[in-house]
Design a protein around this nucleic acid. Structure first.
Length: 585
RNA sequence: GCUCCUGUCGUCUAAUGGCUAGGAUAACUGACUUUCUAUCAGUUGAUGCGGGUUCAAUUCCCGUCAGGAGUUCCA
């Protein structure tokens, strides 16, 4: 078999969704595993949806994930150009092949004509209008119109599209690498537009031509393409390319998190509020917050039974139906860019600044995710190695990956698991590596610290957080004075009657000759024994004095790292504050 | 509506015509910790439903239900 060639072919219509990254990852893994080529192709045939900066975003995102293409725009390769908008002439040339072979025809129906036709058919109570063998002769095209009329239309520059002439009563069987045999009847397929009136091809045309010309051996894409694969196969056949047609592999979709994973007794109010607000923003009719919220509350009332609550009942009025329909769309189905905002997790690899706030998103990178962790998380969304190994380096993934082990059913995006992966990668990192990254984050805030100190912080904090930036948030007290103390604990633990003893303890700490964690611990424990103080009397106070919170790493480690002078100062400041708090009551 | 795809713990999934359906995550409990984490140990929890084939079905077949995707001069 010739060298494996796989392409990742996104559309530059905005930020690249995490599902796209997974597809790219699978393409990359497969290519690398078999010594093949990973190609990036930009499918920018829809100028209406083209978004400035999206192509750069795609390239940057792939780069961040470590999925760098071997061929692509700006990279080069022998099969360029890799931007479909730059391949116009190629498609023009190949559409002629189909036209000449009688596999395609000119259609002069305007978009308005088609809309009207759809309306009409719908009004007649039939389902959807389909442009196919049963209807094409009633439409305005080169099959239904007399030859001379077609000629005149073309000469006069009448706008036209070119449609595929779907054959009648054939079955098309595709052999999907993931789904095995899938069969379609051409009677269910329609005459798809191949060339638009602007002279640019639709996805189907560009895709088949480019995959053939670029000698793509394997097409890995989402299942949303499965229904049109029948058409694609017929096109390869019409072109006479069937013997070099790529193998297809249709990936399961990444789905929204299951509502049961985030709606519970505690959160149902919050989500009722949130979803209602969103509903109102997208429906500028006469809905009132109260009534919308009431419906949402009713639906969320039994978190285990949301799905059946969302079914439209016969008694439901129009408003109720609208709200239920909205909720269903918002809570079920494939993962969408909106879900990130709704549920508080990233859906894009990198942050994206769109024209509006609605079109701006925080990325995995900016949330503090490690790209290796993201890849590891993503590879498991739809694939598994069949072993019990959970953590995979890129090389291990390349080695272990195979399409045979890709599942068929959609996988729900699980943010909790994504966090777990990130923590695993964080804990695995060297303290010195983390220190370097912390240093960067600190300097962004105009702060800094010595490497040894940062390594110490890294060692103490890395297993207590899920993301690198959290080290600086949760452990801010390593870098600046305590900002706030946990007053509740002060109330409970600060006993003014024991003031002398606590002063003595502070003095003891200030006077410890060798200020390392072990010595500090021994000294304090000795002091507690001598003064008949329990753990509960001393440790919470020390923690509070040093860090303001009762949570965190060993208090002795914190002290040793901060140093004797700093700890002494913090104790003085804290004691003073503790007294004030106590007096207030 | 029509076409296609898919149904295993809450979630991601493994496995098999036959031992107690395995792992991970989450939840809960315990141990270790002054605390939070991490770690270790443990607990709870699944084959959508109905029928058929079979000595035996989660696995094969049929039906049904549910979910998803497609049905654009979008990709």
């Amino acid at each position: 078999m010739s060298k494996m060639r796989l392409r990742f072919a996104p559309s530059p219509t905005g930020a690249l969704h995490i599902g796209g990254i997974r597809t790219a990852l699978y393409d990359y893994l497969l290519a690398k595993k078999h010594g093949g080529t990973f190609i990036l192709r930009i499918e920018d045939t829809d100028q209406k949806r083209y978004v400035e900066g999206a192509e750069e975003y795609i390239i940057d995102a792939l780069k961040w994930c470590g999925l760098e293409p071997d061929e692509g725009p700006g990279i080069g390769g022998d099969y360029g150009p890799y931007r479909q908008s730059e391949r116009r002439e190629i498609y023009q040339k190949y559409i002629k092949v189909l036209l000449d072979g009688g596999h395609a025809y000119y259609a002069f129906d305007t978009a308005e004509d088609l809309d009207a036709m759809r309306e009409k058919v719908k009004a007649e109570g039939k389902h959807t209008f389909q442009y196919d063998a049963s209807t094409r002769m009633q439409m305005k095209n080169s099959l239904s119109l007399p030859e001379n009329e077609v000629k005149v239309l073309l000469e006069n520059g009448a706008p036209y599209t070119i449609r595929f002439k779907m054959p009648e009563s054939q079955t098309v069987t595709i052999n999907d690498l993931i789904r095995e045999e899938v069969t379609f009847s051409t009677d269910d397929l329609d005459d798809k537009v191949l060339m638009k009136s602007d002279g640019l091809p639709t996805y189907h045309m560009a895709n088949v031509v480019d995959d053939h010309l670029m000698e793509i051996t394997h097409v890995v894409r989402g299942v949303e393409w499965l229904p049109s694969t029948g058409l694609h196969v017929l096109m390869y056949r019409a072109f006479g390319w069937e013997d070099t047609m790529p193998r297809f592999a249709h990936l399961p979709l990444i789905m929204k998190p299951s509502p049961s994973s985030y709606i519970n007794k505690k959160t149902k109010e919050e989500f009722a509020e949130k979803f209602s607000g969103e509903f109102l923003r997208s429906h500028d009719s006469d809905f009132k917050m109260d009534e919308v919220k009431k419906i949402a509350q009713m639906v969320f009332n039994n978190p285990k039974d949301i799905q059946s609550q969302l079914k439209i009942g016969k008694k439901d009025d129009e408003k109720k139906q609208a709200v239920k329909g909205f909720l269903k769309d918002a809570m079920y189905g494939k993962l969408s860019k909106r879900d990130g905002d709704r549920l508080g997790f990233p859906v894009f690899p990198l942050s994206w600044e769109g024209k509006s706030e609605d079109d701006s998103f925080v990325g995995f990178k900016e949330m503090g995710f490690d790209p290796d962790a993201v890849n590891n998380f993503l590879v498991f969304l739809g694939w598994n190695p069949g072993t019990e190994q959970e953590i995979f380096s890129m090389d291990e993934m390349i080695d272990a990956f195979s399409l045979e082990r890709v599942g068929k059913s959609g996988a729900a995006f699980d943010y909790v698991k994504a966090r777990w992966y990130n923590q695993q990668y964080l804990m695995k990192k060297d303290n010195s590596t983390i220190a370097n990254e912390l240093d960067v984050l600190l300097s962004e805030k105009g702060m800094g610290a010595h490497d040894d100190f940062l390594q110490g912080v890294a060692g103490m904090m890395k297993e207590r957080v899920h993301f690198m930036p959290e080290i600086l948030e949760d452990g801010y007290y390593f870098f600046e004075p305590v900002k706030s103390y946990d007053d509740k604990t002060i109330q409970k633990r600060w006993n003014p009657e024991r003031k002398d003893k606590m002063d003595a303890l502070a003095n003891l700490i200030k006077g410890i000759p060798s200020f390392d964690a072990g010595t500090i611990e021994t000294a304090i424990k000795q002091f507690m024994e001598d003064n008949e103080l329990g753990f509960g009397d001393v440790f919470p106070i020390l923690r509070l004095a040093v860090s303001g919170t009762t949570q965190g790493p060993s208090v002795f480690d914190i002290m040793a790292l901060l140093g004797q002078d700093e700890v002494g100062q913090r104790m003085d400041t804290a004691y003073q504050y503790f007294d004030e708090v106590k007096e207030k009551v």
